[in-house]
Nucleic acid binder design. Structure first.
Lengths: 132, 132
DNA sequence: GACAAATGATACTTATATGGTATCATTATA
DNA sequence: TATAATGATACCATATAAGTATCATTTGTC
């Protein structure tokens, strides 16, 4: 029941580093040196952040990544969604089949309550709020 | 990021069924018929509930399981702990190595907040509270 | 006592998710 | 043109989750 997997964790570290840096463009090599993360994995993480428009990418010599959004607009909830899909703590194991009373299943209701809280917290947490 | 795995889900279903039943002792066969769950898996789930003193077990002809605790004393948090170990949403991936500032890591702090809420909710949710 | 119906214990299998690597293509700059 | 970067993609290793199989033991009923 980890909320964070490594790619999310690495993503946050990298985003924080980039946000704090004075340079505009940061290469994976620099991030790997500074943060001590495995390079190929970090690359794939940053590539997906680029595809999802969280980062801008610059190819070629002197290239790297920069933030595509203000740190205030990068939400932890969104990062989790990018790497793990929608947050669903309460997904019913009986999809369609069986369990006709899914809608008023007391267990699901309880978990849904918890889920709502978690999601609201994750949505209100931004890279900017983690900078201090 | 599922909060519930199948064994926990099955455990809750079985416990609810047993709690609602008028009979004292319920066999796995009956549970399987009524709840449409895979028998060998459900057996292993109930066996661990027995080892952890949530259920009483009766061997032999006419045997089965009954609650060892009042439904008010069976906490969802405890069931999760039985099947998944301690709840830790915020475990740092850098154990000891690196990350010298684990204690004031802003990301961990945030996740810890969320974790505290989730744990308190799971602790206050009992089989009894799910019965209605 | 024999048989059947139950759990106890344990080992095994399979599927999926996670964490990570390797490689070749493409781009851009010095 | 060499080099340092990302893009795209396929692959591998491990852990966890989900489930099965089997044999031993207990106990009630005939």
């Amino acid at each position: 029941m980890k909320l964070l997997t490594r790619n999310i964790d690495y993503a946050v570290r990298a985003l924080l580093y980039i946000a704090r840096s004075k340079k505009k463009v940061i290469s994976v090599s620099e991030l790997v040196e500074e943060l001590n993360l495995p390079k190929p994995f970090l690359r794939s993480v940053l590539q997906t952040l680029h595809k999802r428009k969280v980062l801008k990418a610059y190819k070629g010599y002197g290239g790297g990544f920069s933030l595509a959004l203000s740190p205030r607009k990068i939400y932890l909830g969104e990062l989790i969604r990018i790497f793990k899909g929608n947050i669903r703590l309460n997904e019913c194991i009986f999809k369609r089949k069986l369990c006709p009373n899914r809608n008023n299943c007391p267990l699901r209701r309880k978990i849904k309550e918890i889920e709502n809280y978690v999601i609201s917290k994750l949505k209100s947490t931004t890279i900017s709020s983690l900078l201090d």
